[in-house]
Simulated assay, not measured.
Amino acid sequence: MRKLIAGLKVSLDSKVEGPEGFADWVSAWSEDYGLTPQIDAVVIGGGMYPGYEQYWTAIENQPDQPHPLTGVNPTPAELEWSRFAAETPHYVMSSTVTTSEWKQTRFIGGTDDIANLKRQPGKDIYLMGGARLTASLLDAGLLDELRLIIYPLIAGEAKALFATIEHRHSLDLQRVKQLPDGLVSLVYTIK
């Protein structure tokens, strides 16, 4: 069975976005978890998807220009992810978002769809977020692995990754890696 692997960039106090609705401490939104070689599908929540599609479409369409949202040129890793994302099926779990500009986008409605996706042949699946979707799939027993990049800051009043978790979950630490600028990469399997 395919694994569902969540990869998220969080503050030390497990916040995924600040009061303005985004994680202003993250300098690039590339896939920095080492997942790309082992995945062939992406799951993303409907609240996050419209901004995600807009962000990566801008990089795909103008790879050598400053990004309209950030004002800076895309990093090499962002360019790599934009090419990968344009060719990779994205499954948007939403009851409200139903349209997309990307031809590779499909819409799904619930945890049964995720369970069915895991049973299909293929590589592993990257659960990109958001926080509510990650928590609900963890509670549903569908999340197999959690990869976090921890930023050395306490965000305070902000959206917490695990704010909506309903059940206790034990994790098994698989890997710890210190990254530049005080970041730490953690990989856990879900028991």
Rank of each mutant, 00 (worst) to 15 (best):
R2M: 07
L4Y: 05
G7H: 03
G7D: 09
K9C: 14
K9P: 00
V10P: 04
S11K: 12
S11R: 08
L12P: 03
L12T: 14
L12S: 15
D13V: 10
V16G: 01
E17A: 14
G18H: 08
G18F: 02
E20H: 12
F22H: 13
F22V: 08
F22E: 14
W25F: 15
W25K: 12
V26S: 10
S27W: 07
W29V: 00
W29H: 13
E31Q: 14
D32V: 11
T36V: 15
I39R: 02
A41Y: 01
A41V: 06
A41L: 03
A41D: 01
V42M: 06
V43N: 04
I44T: 03
G45N: 11
G45L: 08
P50W: 07
P50Q: 10
Y52A: 01
E53P: 11
Q54W: 05
Q54A: 12
W56N: 02
W56F: 09
W56Q: 05
T57I: 01
T57M: 03
A58N: 12
A58C: 09
A58R: 09
I59S: 07
E60F: 08
N61Y: 00
Q62K: 14
P63V: 04
P63C: 06
Q65I: 04
Q65T: 11
Q65Y: 05
Q65A: 15
P66C: 08
H67R: 07
H67I: 09
L69C: 01
T70W: 07
V72H: 09
P74N: 06
P74W: 09
P76H: 07
P76D: 12
L79T: 10
S82Q: 08
R83A: 08
R83V: 05
F84I: 15
F84T: 11
F84H: 13
A86P: 00
T88N: 01
H90A: 01
M93W: 00
T96S: 12
V97Q: 08
T98V: 04
T99I: 09
T99W: 06
E101P: 00
K103S: 10
T105I: 06
T105M: 05
R106C: 04
R106W: 03
R106I: 01
F107L: 15
G109K: 14
G110I: 06
A115I: 03
A115V: 04
A115S: 10
N116S: 14
L117N: 06
K118L: 12
K118R: 12
Q120C: 02
G122R: 10
G122Y: 09
K123W: 02
D124P: 04
Y126T: 08
L127S: 04
M128R: 01
R132M: 02
L133V: 14
L133H: 05
L133W: 03
A135P: 02
S136N: 07
D139T: 10
A140E: 09
A140T: 06
L142D: 12
L143K: 11
L143Q: 13
L143C: 10
E145H: 07
I150A: 06
Y151M: 08
Y151P: 00
Y151E: 13
P152C: 10
I154M: 13
G156A: 05
E157V: 03
K159Q: 11
A160G: 15
L161C: 07
F162T: 07
T164M: 03
H167T: 13
L171G: 06
D172W: 09
L173G: 07
V176G: 00
V176R: 03
Q178D: 13
P180E: 13
P180M: 12
L183S: 01
V184A: 15
S185I: 00
S185R: 12
L186K: 03
V187Y: 00
T189K: 14
T189R: 15
